[in-house]
Design a protein around this nucleic acid. Structure first.
Lengths: 222, 222
DNA sequence: GCATGATTATACCGATCTGTATAATATTCG
DNA sequence: CGAATATTATACAGATCGGTATAATCATGC
């Protein structure tokens, strides 16, 4: 628990590793982990491919390291930090999230969320999928903390809904709707205002009325 | 405008084309359009690869045809039709969407939404990306019709928010949260109830308070 | 029955992918 | 200096990808 945990190592080996990871970060973020080959990362980083495989035995490990770095930079360094400077109260910070998203969507370099992309295209149950789901859970936990700090009822429920609005806005922006964050913020404000008035029976799982089977519709997928 | 438009042709050529499309539908839906090769579709359909390229000159055209078929079966045949049998009023149908999603998520064959997956992994501006965005827009238009039928204020605004909740729920379910649709329905009910009371200034774009720049945070992506 | 079009099987092209084998070179440190 | 470690360049293996060339076979309608 020393405070020297994240001291940046300056050894030759560590520097090389960082060069690889830095190139992977840029490429994976812009083009996705599946479309970027190891040779491309080797060329961009200026590190020989053999050295790359010396550090990370397989591409999968490089992807896992990328996920950690992405969470450190995006979730912590950008989202959490940005929200703190834009809102004084937890409630204001919850809403400020969508202002951040809006600026992100307007950025020319916006290419969607790598976490969501990986969730879509990686096999369920694979190490990469599991690790990515954890990173998304980390974000949702942060939302839950904000909701709890504001004494909102069912903070975890609000967090999961907030997460869906965020992810939905990101998908919508990726599909071309650059105003998605603004629309999401409108709805979020309305929802937040109403959330206290309707505890929504946080414990009971909201009865899904099951019909007495009308027409046995064919399943849409698979 | 004859009502013989979707008569199923029985010619040899049309039957072969349908066999290809049927195999592509199953494979693309389960594994994604990028991971499924043309040889796999040829093998599964029992149609020679040369014949496949005789019908669809390139894989991209097969993907575009798949998108049309997916919209016909999922959006129209499953979502629209399912909602109609489960809700009498437009408002009930809007909420019933999440019951449908819940059943979908619980299906063992649930592999996420192909539309969202393609939006994530295809290049922005490519024909496939554009076509997929249109299919998502078709869904949002349907939501707007329901909202308008219920005399809700700013029906298009509600539709885009509804879409985000749906997409967010799908992403959450893909990440392992099988109860996503239930949580989304709770929030949707609260939101719908409050939507009328707060017209939310449908015209004005909800002022995004821009701060007097505190710390010039580095951009997170690219 | 025969010509025409549809389908088949097979082999191949060039490109890309992850990962490895090998041997030479560069750096660091006792 | 000399030895241990890190990095380099190159070539290659084995697989998969989208797409094509060729020539034979099948089915159908006049």
């Amino acid at each position: 628990m020393s405070d020297l945990d994240d001291v940046i190592p300056t050894g030759r080996r560590a520097v090389t590793r960082q060069k690889i990871l830095e190139a992977a970060y840029t490429l994976f973020t812009a083009q996705g982990v599946n479309l970027v080959g190891v040779d491309t990362i080797s060329a961009r980083s200026g590190v020989a491919k053999m050295t790359l495989y010396h550090h990370f035995h397989a591409k999968e490990n490089l992807v896992l390291a990328y996920l950690d770095l992405r969470a450190k930079r995006w979730t912590v360094g950008w989202l959490k930090a940005g929200v703190k400077t834009r809102g004084a109260t937890p409630r204001a910070r919850l809403l400020a999230i969508f202002d951040l998203l809006h600026e992100w969507f307007e950025d020319e370099g916006f290419e969607g969320c790598p976490f969501l992309r990986i969730i879509c295209e990686s096999d369920v149950g694979s190490p990469v999928h599991k690790a990515t789901a954890l990173k998304l859970g980390q974000i949702e936990n942060f939302l839950g903390q904000l909701a709890r700090s504001d004494n909102l009822p069912d903070p975890n429920g609000l967090a999961s809904v907030w997460m869906m609005l965020m992810d939905g806005a990101i998908m919508s922006a990726r599909a071309g709707r650059k105003d998605a964050a603004l629309k999401a913020k409108q709805a979020a404000a309305v929802l937040l205002d109403a959330w206290g008035r309707k505890p929504a029976k946080s414990g009971s799982p909201a009865p899904v009325k099951r019909r007495a089977k009308a027409a046995p519709k064919r399943k849409p997928s698979r």
